[in-house]
Amino acid sequence: MTDTAATAEKTEPGIKAIRLRHPWRNTFAVVLLIIVALFIADAAMRPAYNWPAVGKYLFDQRISQAAFVTLQLTVYSMIIAIILGVTLAIMRLSPNPVVNSMAWVYLWVFRGTPVYVQLVFWGLIGTIYQSIDIGLPFTDPWVSFPTRVALSAFILAIIGLALNEAAYMAEIVRAGLLSVDSGQEEAATALGMSWFQTMVRVIVPQSMRVIIPPAGNEVISMLKTTSLVTAIPFTLELYTRSRDISAVTFETVPMLLVASIWYLFFTSILMVGQYFLEKRFARGIGDRRPDKKADDATAAMTGVTPVVGGNQPTVVLPPNDPDQGDRR
């Protein structure tokens, strides 16, 4: 009797059963691998790709400088776009109708026209408004300087990209702010926190969890949209620079590969950064526990019932699921 009980107990954890097979999954994977291998082998041989030229230009100083300019364009315009986007989102949620409609018109214009067209416009700004005057209307300006001098192509590129992106960021931020339970604002208000404190300390940190994935998407998208600033025309970023080199060397395909490798390298880094940001703003949501021991100690105080029976040792029932409280 005891023997069978013991063996039964032993075999219980590992169930012996024929595992479910997935023949189609395996077949498909093999076919796919063969196709990819053939493609790679073919690409390695094909003269049009000209791999030695790719290797030669990948770390060419002109290219790495252009890659750095692309990164600068992305970072600067994204920073401005996020600040402006948050402002616009808050304006859109404001009960003040004047502020609200201002934000609406901004979104209407900047989201409703193509970014390429906007960039061409920014390029023409020096022709449309030949000088920038500071002063009172209908009087002589205090300061006046030519637009072309004040705004370089680089600055115009940043302005053009940032103002367009801000419209998209505004909607992302607005969705994030709306995703936070209204009880949070009430609780903060009831504690006497001002509207601004409530936003900065309570609403915005919680909305970040919703905002970061699409915002990360926007950063990656921005990195690639920088290739459009040639419309301004600004020619020192990665894509235009590699096109310019290939125009001279006739190595079109290798130069495209060089640019693509750099874009991929940057997006990969951005994706890693996004992962860590998401982890940071998920605090209090995930199943991270600060201290297992403290948990056991306090469990005794709240949810645990000690059961004493007959000659058995005292058995402590497992604590209630600590997450059973209502989650929002």
Partner: peptide
């Protein structure tokens, strides 16, 4: 003004049905 209303609320504590704790803070 919102500021004055906030000052009045400081002295009045409120507890909600759904707790409304700030989930991102300990």
């Amino acid at each position: 003004r919102p500021k004055e209303a906030a000052r009045q609320r400081r002295d009045i504590g409120m507890v909600f049905q759904r707790f409304n704790l700030f989930p991102h803070m300990t």
